[in-house]
């Protein structure tokens, strides 16, 4: 009897995991109808969506950062809003404000006009062009999933995901994101140039007469169910310890920090880094047909989770040391628990 019950539980869990993987691949297939290549970026965006996090996409212009998010919004069938951040934008422009409207009786009244921040999928395009004041308007929405305007607090509808883009090249007239906001992003994904063989597909899909139609393959409810499935994935103690060691290794002068981190890092990751490693690792475990997170899953997502949480000092910038180099060093120095070598 016990074995039969166990088998039923296992089959139910296996069905959930299979469904998770199926939806993931369906969404990716829809996005890839339009996007050529950038598989790692697409997987990272989907991982963040299914793990309940936010994504910061960084890349030079023309690589499809905005296109990825737009295609994803069409494939998921969620309420989507795009905010083009500009230097003169104010917090009220994205949160909403009270406006004077005319009533049917000819009178006037103050009503709350929602801003574009109140949606499911937010594309914060070129987020670093807004002033820190406007950028700070995202903090509450990203962490608390609510917006407070005056005395009004609006709880944002789940799933809620902010996908921001920024251009690392054009620094004139931009405002670097504060550490508090960077820490709220689950992933920072670097969008690179396509491969040589991908250029032909890009030309065909973007300059041909045939229009690409992206169909919604899932909805918000399914996304929330999949998030629950992801959070249910088991985490062994050695994996927790390894994730903690990795995050502590990003903190200068900690016992796990390599020499390079102590030398080039001003600030390390916060505990949000461990949360991000665990959530993203759970999604990776499900995608790899496993029911428990492994240390390899944590290693896989370490770069995306930790690279924007490492604040480098002036010496690192002067010597062109990148966070990815430091993370590589961390992954090499921090041994997995129970490692025999």
């Amino acid at each position: 009897m016990a074995n039969q019950a166990t088998t039923q539980v296992d089959s139910a869990v296996a069905a959930q995991a299979g469904h998770f993987k199926q939806v993931f691949h369906e969404i990716r297939a829809e996005v890839q109808k339009m996007m050529v290549g950038q598989t790692a970026v697409i997987d990272g965006v989907l991982t963040a969506l299914l793990a309940g996090g936010h994504v910061l996409l960084e890349g030079v212009p023309g690589l499809g950062k905005t296109m990825i998010v737009r295609c994803l919004s069409e494939a998921v069938h969620l309420h989507f809003s795009r905010i083009q951040f500009t230097p003169d934008m104010m917090p009220a422009d994205i949160q909403g404000t009270m406006v004077l409207t005319e009533t049917t009786g000819g009178g006037h009244e103050l009503t709350f006009q929602q801003g574009p921040l109140i949606s499911n999928l937010i594309l914060a395009d070129e987020i670093n062009r807004a002033t820190p004041k406007t950028q700070s308007a995202l903090l509450e929405a990203m962490q608390e999933k609510q917006v407070t305007v005056g005395s009004r607090t609006i709880h944002l509808e789940e799933p809620y995901c902010v996908m921001a883009t920024q251009n690392p090249v054009e620094q004139e007239g931009t405002y670097p994101l504060p550490e508090a906001q960077l820490d709220r992003f689950l992933f920072k994904l670097i969008v690179g140039y396509p491969e040589e063989h991908e250029y032909a597909d890009i030309v065909d899909r973007t300059t041909g007469s045939e229009e690409v139609e992206i169909k919604p393959v899932t909805d918000g409810k399914t996304i929330l169910e999949l998030r629950d499935v992801a959070r249910a994935v088991a985490v062994p103690q050695n994996v927790k310890n390894y994730a903690v060691h990795l995050v502590m290794a990003t903190q200068p002068e900690s016992r796990y920090a390599p020499e390079s981190v102590s030398k080039y890092t001003l600030l390390g990751s916060s505990p949000r880094g461990v949360q991000g490693l665990m959530l993203a690792g759970k999604v990776q475990a499900l995608l790899n047909d496993r029911f428990a997170v492994s240390t390899d899953d944590v290693k896989t997502v370490a770069h995306g989770v930790l690279r924007h949480r490492l604040i480098l000092n002036f010496q690192a910038q002067a010597t062109n040391v990148t966070p990815d180099q430091l993370i590589d060093d961390i992954l090499e120095q921090v041994k997995t628990p129970h490692a025999v070598d």
């Binding site: 166990t6 539980v9 296992d10 139910a12 869990v13 249910a232 088991a234 428990a292």
Partner: peptide, 10 residues
């Protein structure tokens, strides 16, 4: 948990 049980079976 069910996922832990599934991990054991796996």
């Amino acid at each position: 948990t069910p996922f832990e049980q599934a991990a054991i079976t796996d």
